[in-house]
Design a binder for these strands. Structure first.
Length: 531
RNA sequence: GCCCCUAUCGUCUAGAGGCCUAGGACACGGGCUUUUCAAGCCCGGUACAUGGGUUCGAAUCCCGUUAGGGGCACCA
């Protein structure tokens, strides 16, 4: 299938004022998948990472690094932007807004142009911080008395630069006559086409004379975005729907700069097309935030989620290919991706389903891969140590090398694991003597005497078993002894004595890994609990 | 308060006027397997917000209502 647009360029523009957020990662993923999909279909598409660090006070280098590392961990690769090594790639740099003004004078040049053309004005409103934070005070800005003052380069007083919204003046008139400064009844709308929601309209007047820069070299978000998207030749702006209210402002600025115009049907045409993604919601259906729990990609990594599961799960939040497949590789997602299949309403981030999906991915790993993934978590749990790339730990079975020992433990737990962080808790009894209350050994209503006898019987059976020590041999020996009676009477105390847990893999699998000697030792220790 | 967006099982969703007495997945309940916990297999319950149109026919199209969400910074 061929496509009309060539050299499609999309971008993700996070601000480094916090760790990589799940919402940002999902937006990045959709942009990435969009570009990958176009590449597959023959377009020379690019996915750009741009760092919006115009707010020098809140932006931090460590956050920028976290964003880069997080995207890298997820496997969301960008074609242009800052790199992990502190350099840049791509021909449209710099990719940090802070550097763009310094090197290119991007923003001050266009600011001057707007001022000259009378599309913007320097505003000397003596607003205090309190006044600015008071929403009602904004009518003061709509009615800014300084809007007709010419900009004077010698002016030393502080000023900000505002977009001159001629429609706002209609509001002024109404306000002067005693109306509400925010009540609009004009039918001048800015209307744009959205690839997800079709047409979106919003009145022009209520926007007022909004601020576009704090000074010539301190551009503000709405202005900086428009300039950057234009200079970077962005063709599709794919972002969260929380940006819908910003879009009219950006379109008005693009129009003032001569980059956008209204077509004969009244729709704004910019060099790029918009697609606003539904939001990711918390369980109470409000925008996902800290109070809902983990929101940064890094936290999910620490909890032991696999990047493949995260990508698969995030992709299905607000998008779906229309069939009944649930598990998708990154490549399959890229192949199937299309903006038309994006949902319009928000999607709750349901960690229960994420856990299931993560388990699916864990089960698909080879034992070697799983071991490699789990080692850091075993180390963190204090069960093993890594020295010179070799595993060191307490190890109970002299017949197995340590690597084999660990591999077999993880192979045993593989179907049970949902998160890698659970590994330590699940397998600790393979690395240290279990601690438990003697009541754990009781199956149904067995007496102390019954339990002791069961433990002794198990011990006896183990001590006379002939190699090979494997599940099959053990099963035969025990089942021959048990016959038709209740298996739990012998097997529950055995399993509990070996694992010290009320839930664990079966006793034969444990013996197989733990070895006969250690198993017998644990049975003896269990017997001692009964004197 | 004002502007904007949205509306199918608890959750993610399929559904582009008849194939829908609404399909799948997670979760939940039950069963098989089973010494426990998983995994696996089988079965089950639960949804088109509401009122009006349009149409021979509406989950699907239009309007209102209601509900939810987002946004209203010299943050992004």
């Amino acid at each position: 299938m061929s496509i009309a647009i060539k050299n499609s360029r999309v971008r993700i523009a996070p601000s480094p004022t916090g760790f990589l957020h799940i919402g940002t990662a999902r937006t990045a993923l959709f942009n990435y998948l969009f570009a990958q999909n176009y590449k597959i279909r023959g377009d020379n598409a690019s996915f750009i990472l741009r760092i919006e660090d115009t707010d020098q006070e809140r932006s931090k280098k460590e956050y920028e690094e976290d964003i880069l590392n997080g995207l890298n961990w997820l496997g969301i690769e960008w074609d242009e932007g800052p790199t992990l090594h502190g350099t840049e790639k791509g021909n449209f740099g710099p990719y940090n807004q802070s550097k763009r003004e310094r090197k290119l004078k991007s923003y001050s040049n266009y600011l001057t142009q707007l001022l000259k053309n009378g599309k913007a004005f320097a505003c000397f409103c003596p607003s205090s911080k309190e006044e600015i934070e008071d929403k009602n005070n904004d009518k003061f800005h709509i009615l800014c008395p300084y809007k007709d003052m010419a900009y004077n380069p010698d002016e030393t007083r502080q000023f900000v630069i505002r977009y001159k919204n001629t429609y706002a003046e209609k509001l002024e008139e109404r306000f002067k006559k005693g109306g509400d400064a925010f009540k609009t009844n004009e039918d001048d709308y800015v209307t744009f086409q959205d690839l997800v929601r079709n047409k979106i309209s919003s009145p022009k007047d209520i926007l007022g004379h909004f601020v576009i820069a704090k000074s010539f070299d301190e551009p503000l978000y709405n202005f900086a975005v428009v300039v950057d998207d234009y200079e970077m030749k962005i063709t599709h702006v794919i972002r969260g729907e929380d940006h819908i209210p910003n879009t009219p402002k950006q379109l008005l600025l693009a129009e003032a700069l001569g980059w956008a115009q209204v077509d004969e049907t009244g729709v704004f045409q910019a060099p790029w097309t918009y697609a606003h993604l539904p939001l990711i919601l918390g369980t109470d259906r409000s925008k996902l935030s800290k109070r809902h729990g983990a929101t940064s990609v890094n936290e999910y990594k620490t909890l032991g989620y696999l990047p493949e599961a995260m990508v698969n799960f995030m992709a299905l939040l607000g998008w779906n290919p229309g069939d009944e497949q649930e598990i998708f590789s990154k490549e399959e997602l890229a192949k199937e991706f299309s903006l038309e299949k994006i949902q319009k309403s928000g999607a709750v981030f349901d960690t229960v389903k994420l856990d299931w999906m993560n388990g699916e991915y864990i089960r698909r790993k080879s034992v070697e891969e799983l071991t490699a993934l789990c080692i850091p978590f075993l180390e963190k749990a204090g069960l093993i140590k890594i020295q010179n790339a070799k595993i060191k730990s307490q190890h109970y079975n002299p017949k197995l090398k340590i690597d084999e020992y660990v591999n077999r433990i993880l192979a045993l737990e593989q179907p049970r694991l949902k998160k890698l962080s659970e590994t330590g808790e699940r397998v600790n009894f393979f690395f240290q003597e279990p601690e438990y209350d003697k009541e754990l050994l009781r199956w149904k209503n067995m007496s102390d005497e019954d339990i002791k006898k069961a433990l002794q019987k198990a011990e006896k059976l183990l001590s006379v078993i002939n190699p090979p020590i494997d599940k099959k041999t053990l099963e035969k020996a025990f089942f021959d002894e048990i016959g038709d009676s209740d298996k739990g009477k012998l097997l529950w105390p055995l399993r509990a004595a070996l694992s010290g847990k009320k839930a664990s893999p079966g006793p034969f699998e444990i013996v197989e890994i733990l070895g006969i000697e250690e198993s017998i030792k644990r049975l003896e220790q269990a017997e001692q609990k009964f004197g």
